[in-house]
Simulated scan of single mutants.
Amino acid sequence: MEENFQTAAPARLTVRGEKTRARIVATAADLMRVRGVGGTTLDDVAAVSKVSKSQLYRHFEDKPALVRAVIEFVGARRIAGERERLGNVRTFAGLRRWRDAVVETNALHEGKYGCSLGSLANEVADQDAIARVQLQDLFTAWEELFADLLRRFQQDGLIPEDADVEQLATGLIAALQGGYLLAQTSRDVTPMAIALDVSIDHLHLLAREHIEVV
């Protein structure tokens, strides 16, 4: 299956072919975000992206190949955005601004659709081993952004030097993803806000204990 996925996007595409492929993937990503992977057919993607079925199959041999391309597209966009948002955070105020922005963005749709990567993981991780590994790598990269942030906190003396940043980063991304899921099912971003607040409050507690010891 992996070889099929690699040959689905030939290296020598024309400029027009690259644009067509990119349009198909972006369209599929938008449809799958709203309808889910299971609710999106190749016919849907072809119709909305305004390509023929033969054009679609020229780029993707089957739906799993297209889904993997969507994961790559969505993942790259999400990680790039989070890197920009988290990359310069060095204070609790900055972390709070990140939290507020995440909650406010999710509130625009009353929590609907959840996290783009989390939703893909829920649908395909148990069905496609290649897609599962893709998603695992993306979540690992996302978690590392939190770990980098926490290392900066350590360097600046905000949290103890012996704090387990990998464990804390796992807690943050778990709170975020759990918050997305609860907000999606309740159509209310309050559970997401609470989950993130609990994780940030834990960091504040570490900070206070560190100051008291110092």
Score class of each variant (00 low, 15 high):
residue 117 L to A: 03
residue 193 A to R: 12
residue 17 G to Q: 01
residue 150 L to P: 03
residue 202 H to P: 00
residue 36 G to M: 14
residue 25 V to I: 15
residue 21 R to V: 01
residue 193 A to D: 12
residue 158 L to E: 05
residue 169 A to R: 02
residue 46 A to K: 07
residue 41 T to G: 12
residue 76 A to G: 14
residue 201 D to V: 09
residue 161 E to F: 04
residue 40 T to C: 06
residue 189 V to E: 02
residue 71 I to W: 08
residue 111 G to N: 02
residue 87 G to P: 01
residue 104 E to M: 08
residue 29 A to F: 06
residue 161 E to L: 11
residue 155 Q to N: 07
residue 162 D to T: 04
residue 151 R to W: 07
residue 196 L to G: 08
residue 203 L to D: 08
residue 17 G to C: 02
residue 180 Y to N: 10
residue 4 N to R: 15
residue 188 D to E: 03
residue 135 L to Q: 07
residue 120 L to V: 09
residue 33 R to C: 11
residue 44 D to R: 11
residue 87 G to T: 01
residue 206 L to E: 02
residue 13 L to H: 02
residue 168 L to V: 03
residue 143 E to R: 14
residue 124 V to L: 04
residue 80 A to Q: 13
residue 92 F to R: 03
residue 167 Q to E: 15
residue 98 W to R: 03
residue 210 H to T: 05
residue 140 T to M: 14
residue 167 Q to G: 11
residue 125 A to W: 09
residue 14 T to Y: 02
residue 40 T to A: 07
residue 94 G to V: 03
residue 207 A to F: 05
residue 91 T to S: 15
residue 57 Y to G: 05
residue 184 Q to C: 09
residue 11 A to C: 02
residue 149 L to A: 06
residue 36 G to N: 08
residue 106 N to K: 09
residue 181 L to S: 06
residue 150 L to M: 10
residue 100 D to I: 15
residue 84 E to S: 07
residue 101 A to L: 08
residue 177 Q to G: 09
residue 13 L to A: 03
residue 135 L to C: 10
residue 200 I to V: 14
residue 92 F to P: 01
residue 110 E to N: 11
residue 166 E to V: 05
residue 99 R to K: 15
residue 12 R to M: 11
residue 37 V to K: 12
residue 51 V to P: 02
residue 64 P to C: 10
residue 23 R to K: 14
residue 35 R to Q: 13
residue 48 V to H: 04
residue 171 G to S: 09
residue 109 H to Q: 12
residue 37 V to W: 12
residue 18 E to M: 15
residue 196 L to I: 14
residue 136 Q to N: 10
residue 85 R to G: 02
residue 157 G to V: 05
residue 143 E to P: 00
residue 111 G to P: 05
residue 22 A to P: 01
residue 116 S to K: 09
residue 99 R to H: 13
residue 102 V to F: 04
residue 36 G to E: 10
residue 57 Y to K: 04
residue 1 M to L: 13
residue 156 D to V: 06
residue 35 R to K: 14
residue 149 L to T: 09
residue 189 V to K: 01
residue 203 L to Y: 06
residue 1 M to Q: 10
residue 1 M to I: 05
residue 42 L to E: 01
residue 164 D to V: 04
residue 97 R to M: 15
residue 63 K to R: 15
residue 163 A to W: 00
residue 122 N to D: 14
residue 83 R to K: 13
residue 140 T to G: 13
residue 158 L to R: 10
residue 178 G to A: 12
residue 186 S to G: 00
residue 30 D to G: 06
residue 93 A to P: 00
residue 105 T to N: 13
residue 18 E to V: 07
